[in-house]
Write a protein that binds this DNA or RNA. Structure first.
Lengths: 300, 300
DNA sequence: TATTCCGATAGTGAC
DNA sequence: GTCACTATCGGAATGAG
């Protein structure tokens, strides 16, 4: 196989072989991981028996109540993943268990963009800043997920851009040599034998929006380069590149923090995440600039 | 010849036969009139000798000075008609003499839209409200032109829409009978022999903009129906359908009149000139409504 | 602060 | 207050049968 052109290499083709060993994927059925990342298959969650979940009926009641009054609200679009990850709607489910579903964002704002969806109905409509600031146990669980999913996102960045990256070249060439050797090591043994290469984790951010527009609680994990056709207007960009995004490592917020009330944040200037250049309200110019920064960034 | 579809009958095809006798066109070389309305030919003005006009050289100097500093200002776009009507630029010249040039507006905002352009360079940049309020002799000359050109515009409306008009039917049928008689009367004798038909003059307005955007003094004469693809946005419509247009019959304004300072007129609501319906800022809806009103209006 | 469509609004550059 | 082009900003609908 020759190198892929950059604009045709975005299909997730992660395999179990590509999974970095530092990702404790074994906690969460790594096969489901990688197969779901491929949008090919999913596995029923072990506890998905029809009778064991009282929330299941109440959730259905809730959904029906919403549709009974009229039309469905597009802001409720995440509920189908939360209630029926086993259906793998739109092929977006990456993994799930009793507590969380992880999906690829339907309108990704970066090369990698995952959402963590808590499944506990009592958490659906909690304000993310309040919850993550006041529920240490929940925060801790999320941090565990985020750490592991950051590795997943980093490996996906490596898959997409490793061949273009100068600083990843040692890893890439060592991997190629290893895989073409007569007796390749097992996947779990590989990482320890490879040079570190580029730290793709540094390009992954996780956090929540101060005022989410999708109704159900969700945590974003995405790469920071913001190279995506779905970044279409100012608020798309600002919502991931200002304090409107509260990153996981910033929690818990102190009570009464100004972060709870960002004011007229859509009026803030847009500044390049990489070089800091200020583009004011000129979104198109920012987009053109991001295209240039992307080309430089991926070659780092 | 069968009846023309309404959307293909806009080409000016006025002939000398069509000129209403009440238009004192003979004062202004009616042949030039009609031929220029056809955008086919023009005649040099009698006084256009190279040496008899000191303004001519000063005007050329002015033009050169403007172009010398760089590019020409599109707001000076009327100067070519004023200085060189004999060239009949773009075929838009309707008539001219030593004092005025009459052209068809390059971006007509109605079925008929003429401009009167005074040729005296000392008047070019006079404020139209001030000039028409304080120079009775000038106002009088303009009124004479406007009266005659209103007749011309009315005859053009008759040409375009007479066949569709219920109230013009007596005129139209009498004209047809007259022209198919064995011995048709001369053009100048016809009007006295025809019934009046529809009063198309009532649909013609004349006036000036309080803050013209074209630099050289110009007076508008146009039909009021505002049916034109060049009416493209709110200010186009408001500028002819509010007190921002000062009609000729309103002059002279009293000194200190509020008409000199219309304030934030582009924020005013748009209301239908015919039925008074208020469209606020909804230009597209107004446009659709004007289309309906046009169909009714022309059939009156 | 979900997308999408449509339209109103605003700034620019023309030459 | 020209036109024409681009882009920004703003509201409203948004499904399913």
């Amino acid at each position: 196989m020759g190198p892929c052109p950059s604009d045709s290499s975005k299909q997730p083709v992660i395999t179990a072989e590509d999974m970095p060993s530092q990702a404790p994927a074994s906690q969460k059925r790594p096969n489901a991981f990688t197969e779901l990342m491929n949008a090919r298959a999913k596995k029923p969650r072990p506890s998905d028996s029809p009778s064991d979940s009282p929330e299941q009926s109440s959730k259905s009641t809730y959904t029906k109540a919403k549709t009974a009054v009229g039309f469905s609200d597009p802001r409720d679009g995440l509920i189908v993943y939360i209630e029926h990850p086993e259906r793998n709607p739109d092929g977006r489910v990456v993994e799930y268990d009793d507590d969380f579903v992880v999906i690829r964002d339907k309108f990704p704002k970066a090369s990698v963009h995952l959402l963590i969806l808590p499944r506990d109905p009592s958490l659906y409509f909690r304000h993310p800043l309040e919850l993550l600031s006041n529920d240490p146990a929940f925060l801790s669980k999320i941090q565990t997920y985020v750490s592991r999913l950051t590795d997943l996102a980093a490996s996906e960045l490596r898959r997409q851009y490793g061949a273009d990256s100068a600083s990843d070249a040692p890893y890439q060439s060592a991997l190629e040599a290893m895989m073409s050797s007569p007796d390749p090591p097992s996947p779990s043994a590989r990482a320890a034998l490879l040079p570190p290469g580029r730290d793709w984790r540094a390009d992954v951010v996780a956090g929540v929006h101060t005022h989410p527009s999708m109704n159900h609680l969700h945590i974003h994990i995405l790469s920071r380069e913001q190279h995506s056709p779905w970044v279409k207007h100012k608020k798309h960009y600002l919502s991931f590149n200002t304090s409107f995004l509260v990153q996981l490592h910033e929690f818990p917020l102190e009570e009464g923090s100004v972060r709870f009330h960002p004011g007229k944040w859509p009026n803030w200037d847009m500044t390049c995440w990489r070089c800091g250049q200020n583009f004011g309200n000129q979104f198109k110019k920012l987009k053109a600039h991001l295209e240039e920064e992307f080309e430089t960034w991926k070659r780092e």
